[in-house]
Write a protein that binds this DNA or RNA. Structure first.
Lengths: 154, 154
DNA sequence: TTTTATTTTATAATTATTATAAATTAGTAA
DNA sequence: TTACTAATTTATAATAATTATAAAATAAAA
């Protein structure tokens, strides 16, 4: 029920325990990841990291992200409406709110009533978890829609 | 509540009404889309179309899919766990069941109890719809998991 | 039919991601 | 501290998915 955000320490510990070395690059990527709630893409993480460490390379960003995801549990990926693969360090079971216009993505930690898939619908699948995505317009995009009133635009 | 699958006729009509021409290529892509419940990717649609019309080009498949999606309502896209962009002609509001191992995707038309996002969680968003995704293992992948018992595999 | 704008095709360009191999470095132990 | 070694990083090339371009083909209307 409480917020269980990944801390930099937890992620660093995860890497250590799997016998990996700690590097300034990995530390920077982890810091960025944990403090960014916008669910950035790999490219966005690379841009922000490169701004601070000029010779950071894309390969390092991709490698580190893959390792963190593969090590399990602490970082996961999401992908909505062709907005690219996005990284998330929110460990709480949580849901999403996605702006169909600007692709902003917000975490929803609200605890909804239990949802169970009736066995006859489950097609023999073993269900592990579920996730609700709300689609809508963020405040900014609602404004923009009002301004260009005519609904018959391309 | 009833099943509202897109028919080829509805999609053809949609193109006609927007002033587009009907071509054998478009007709073939539409037929494939409507009769395929596996939520194929653009590449899969291209492969199947090319098997019947040898000089079908990828550009035509991409163009046609984009048009159908842009014309609204009748075709939509989904994307889960880096399995690529997948096309869907199921018009019913519906949910999904996704195999985390083989990426099979099944539609769930079950009507769940109403889910509403409390305003204080909605961050000013205007909610348009929501979609539940169940993650699990399909029957085939459950079997495969049992066989290779040891859980410490790469 | 003829006409014309749309569509298709083939191809090139772009973008995102992955692979490779040489240079660098973290962690360990002398 | 210094030296050692395997892991990591970097730069670059390769691959895959998608988009752009422009010439050739064609559907729909006259």
């Amino acid at each position: 029920m409480g917020k269980t955000m990944s801390t930099p320490e937890a992620l660093i510990e995860l890497l250590r325990q799997s016998g990996r070395k700690m590097t300034p690059q990995r530390r920077a990527i982890i810091e960025l990841l944990v403090h960014d709630t916008t669910h950035p893409t790999a490219e966005e993480i690379y841009q922000r990291a490169a701004a601070m460490m000029p010779d950071m390379s894309r390969a390092t960003v991709y490698n580190t992200l893959h390792e963190l995801v593969a090590l399990g549990g602490l970082v996961e990926t999401h992908e909505f409406s062709e907005s690219g693969i996005r990284y998330d360090t929110n460990l709480d079971p949580h849901h999403h709110l996605f702006c169909i216009h600007c692709h902003a993505l917000v975490d929803i930690s609200h605890d909804f009533a239990e949802i169970t898939l009736p066995p006859r619908e489950a097609a023999g699948y073993q269900i592990i978890r579920h996730q609700i995505t709300f689609y809508g317009l963020c405040p900014t995009c609602q404004e923009r829609n009002k301004e260009q009133a005519s609904p018959s635009n391309t």
